[in-house]
Each structure stands twice: as structure tokens, then as C-alpha cells.
């Protein structure tokens, strides 16, 4: 596969995930949650940056961009950019313009989501910036390689940090964490929590499987090819289960979109050796 093909798979996975995420934002907007008396009121969130922007010109620009009316325009602009990215030819003016605008929209929407945003938004921003540099007019084979390494290393950092943080936690080490998370209404699932209730050894296995697999995840870059693909298969299954059990749909698309970059690095390192 050529560099371009890897990047295009990343682009497709990214776009699918972002279409769902963006339509969710649009739905919340239609329910009035981004209006001045909604859950995500800009009038209130803005107070956090008042000391920085005050009544300055930047503050006024942000008000126009991020109040309810500005926000919905941003969301539509993001959707339009996503469609253009799939329809337009990579390396063209149109693709460059759409990908740059998309990054800008995502930065503003993420800024607006300083409360209520999550890690999938941050990984998506990393992907969007990489797609801009990798498939726009500024791109070159060297830059594309940088993009793969940047995405892949951020992905490995995410998994291993998460694994290390879990091994430091008593609840994870004792095997209580998985059941207790699945037993919540926020991120859990009644059926699964009933299945796991009083199953000490299964819970212990699940907790340690997550801890170990997350910590060793970066090995997929340097391990034997079958080990590497086994780790990626685990990652894919892990996110799929998180989607079904926990409703973390955006994480599935954001993190599996990093896998083509991981495969690229894996093969690149093997070629070097």
C-alpha cells in the first residue's frame, strides 16, 4: 500500500466517526442545549475566559462564533467540510481549504466543549491536523510519514498511559473496577452488570486483561507481526465492546482510525530492521 492509501483509510474512518459526532451536536443544538439557557450555555462557559478576553475584539469574535446561532453555523460548516474531504481530490485546493477549515471548526467546537468534551474529541483533532498535513497541497511523502508516526505514537501514548494509570489504581488491581463501572447508569449496562455480579475471578481477569493489554499496546509497533496484529485485534474488540456496553461510540471511530498509522509504522520498522 502507498502512503496515500493508508491516509485515505484513516480519512474514511475519521469522517464516519465525525459525521455521527457532529450530528449528535446538531441534535443537542435542536433541543436547545446550546442556547443561553441550555446545558452548554456559551454565556456561562464564556465566564471562564472573561479574564483573558474581557470585552476585547477577540471576546466579541468568539461570542459571534460560539453563541447558539454561531455554533450551529460552525456545526454545519464542519459537516460540509467532512463531505468535501470525501468528495474532493486529495492534494487539491478544495481539499486543502476544506481540511484547514475543518481543523479550525474542530478547535472552536472543542473550545466550546471544555465541559462535556472527551478524549475522542482530542484524538479526532490529532487526526484532523494530520489529514490536513498529509493530504493537502502542503503534503509530501516525508510529511505523510511524519503524520503516521505522530498519529501512531499518540495512539500508543493513549493506551499505555491509560494502562499505567489503571495499574496504579487499587480498584483496577483488585478487579472491582470493571463491574463497578458497568454497574453505573452513566457508562454501564444493566444486563452486563447482572452477568458480572459476584463473579470475582471473571472481573479480576477483565480488569487485568485491560491493564496488561493497554500497557503492552506499544509493542504492536516492534513485536513480531502476528503479535502486532493480535494486539490491534484486541484493540478493535475492546472498542467495539465499549461501544455496545458503554455507549462510547465516538471512541471507536477515533481510535480505530489510528490503526492504519500503527500498521504503517509497524511495517516501516520491520523494513528498517
Amino acid at each position: 500500500m502507498y502512503y496515500y492509501e493508508y491516509l485515505y483509510v484513516i480519512l474514511l474512518l475519521f469522517v464516519i466517526g465525525q459525521v455521527f459526532t457532529t450530528s449528535e451536536l446538531l441534535f443537542l443544538h435542536l433541543k436547545g442545549e446550546y442556547s443561553s439557557n441550555g446545558f452548554f450555555s456559551w454565556k456561562i462557559i464564556r465566564l471562564d475566559i472573561n479574564t483573558l478576553t474581557g470585552d476585547s475584539r477577540i471576546g466579541n469574535i468568539l461570542d459571534n462564533l460560539l453563541d447558539a446561532r454561531g455554533f450551529v453555523k460552525l456545526v454545519f460548516m464542519k459537516l460540509a467540510c467532512l463531505i468535501i474531504l470525501v468528495a474532493a481530490a486529495p492534494y487539491s485546493y478544495l481539499f486543502t481549504f476544506a481540511s484547514a477549515t475543518l481543523v479550525l471548526c474542530m478547535l472552536l467546537i472543542q473550545f466550546r466543549s471544555m465541559y462535556g468534551g472527551d478524549g475522542s474529541d482530542q484524538m479526532s483533532l490529532i487526526l484532523a491536523v494530520s489529514i490536513f498535513f498529509g493530504l493537502s497541497m502542503v503534503s509530501s511523502p516525508v510529511i505523510q510519514k511524519y503524520c503516521f508516526y505522530f498519529i501512531g505514537l499518540q495512539s500508543c501514548l493513549a493506551y499505555s498511559t491509560s494502562g499505567i494509570a489503571k495499574i496504579l489504581s487499587k480498584k483496577w488491581r483488585s478487579g472491582d473496577a470493571v463491574y463497578e463501572i458497568f454497574n453505573t447508569g452513566s457508562y454501564g449496562n444493566k444486563t452486563i452488570s447482572n452477568l458480572l455480579k459476584n463473579k470475582k475471578y471473571i472481573n479480576l481477569f477483565l480488569c487485568w486483561a485491560v491493564i496488561i493489554m493497554e500497557i503492552i499496546f506499544p509493542l504492536c509497533l516492534i513485536g513480531p507481526i502476528y503479535v502486532s496484529f493480535a494486539i490491534l485485534l484486541w484493540g478493535f474488540t475492546f472498542h467495539l465492546l465499549n461501544v455496545i456496553v458503554m455507549g462510547l461510540n465516538s471512541f471507536f471511530w477515533a481510535f480505530t482510525a489510528t490503526y492504519p498509522a500503527l500498521i504503517f509504522i509497524m511495517l516501516d520498522i520491520k523494513n528498517l530492521i
Partner: peptide
């Protein structure tokens, strides 16, 4: 880091959310 450009990748750890608000 209002935008959250720099991620903190410690999902559900070290204190997993085991309660509902």
C-alpha cells in the same frame, strides 16, 4: 489549555467513575 489540545489519556483511571451523579 482551554481547547484541550494536549490530551490527558487516563481513561477511567486511577479513579474509575463507579457512581452516578
Amino acid at each position: 489549555d482551554f481547547i484541550g489540545i494536549f490530551p490527558n489519556w487516563t481513561f477511567f483511571a486511577p479513579n474509575p467513575g463507579t457512581s452516578d451523579y
